[in-house]
Design a protein around this nucleic acid. Sequence first.
DNA 1: TCTCCATTTCGTTATCTGGCGAAATATACA
DNA 2: TGTATATTTCGCCAGATAACGAAATGGAGA
Lengths: 114, 114
Amino acid sequence: MRQVSNLYKALSDQNRLRILMMLKDKPMCVCEIVNVLQLANSTVSKHLSILRNVDLIMDEKDGRWVNYRLAQSDESDLIDNVMSQLNSLFIGDETINKDRQAVREADRHQICAS
Amino acid sequence: MRQVSNLYKALSDQNRLRILMMLKDKPMCVCEIVNVLQLANSTVSKHLSILRNVDLIMDEKDGRWVNYRLAQSDESDLIDNVMSQLNSLFIGDETINKDRQAVREADRHQICAS
DNA sequence: TCTCCATTTCGTTATCTGGCGAAATATACA
DNA sequence: TGTATATTTCGCCAGATAACGAAATGGAGA
């Protein structure tokens, strides 16, 4: 019960929803996400840990970066189910479209170390 | 965007999840729900208005009672999608099973006016 | 080793949320 | 009309949440 409500709590924040939809395209490091959402590093890091705690995303160390990606689908199919729900809920959403455009155009090496 | 996060906010409370799962079985009035959740009338009423505001449930006046039921499925299929997600997330959940048992055994006319 | 930089953790603050009881509203029935 | 009952609304309080900046952590490379 607590686990289920925590899942929906994780999904109940606009910035975390934007993060999930961005990660559909490709894995991203924290500073790339900061660049899109325009929030403090610490804030984005916390959002990511909330999403990780409910198994919606995973992290992978890559040198000094940490790449975040959508979780692998497992036997519960949780992530597939959630993402297909989000896809239909966000059809035509302006914020989501702009974010994904920004992600496509961004280059990690230009954004970070600014 | 706001609409989507509000949907998940509505789903992020354990008592509201319990209400949705109870309503799968049959429409219920506020005092029946109060009887199961053991919360104040005013608290349950507020939970119901939050669920109604995101179109997950509807209300129908019936004399001095107000019956709440799951929303009708519409072209967006929101309610069907959400409820099938909840069904799989709550498989084997003790609280949910007990609630639904209590609902089956309860008689509105004995519970209300106590 | 030392420095740089990405990330996380910590401490603080403003706002949101869920809970309650009391008062207001609405309907049935004597 | 008056009373009883179901529900909603209001005002309040305690705890949760999202935001920030500063400090701590950890890896890369000089």
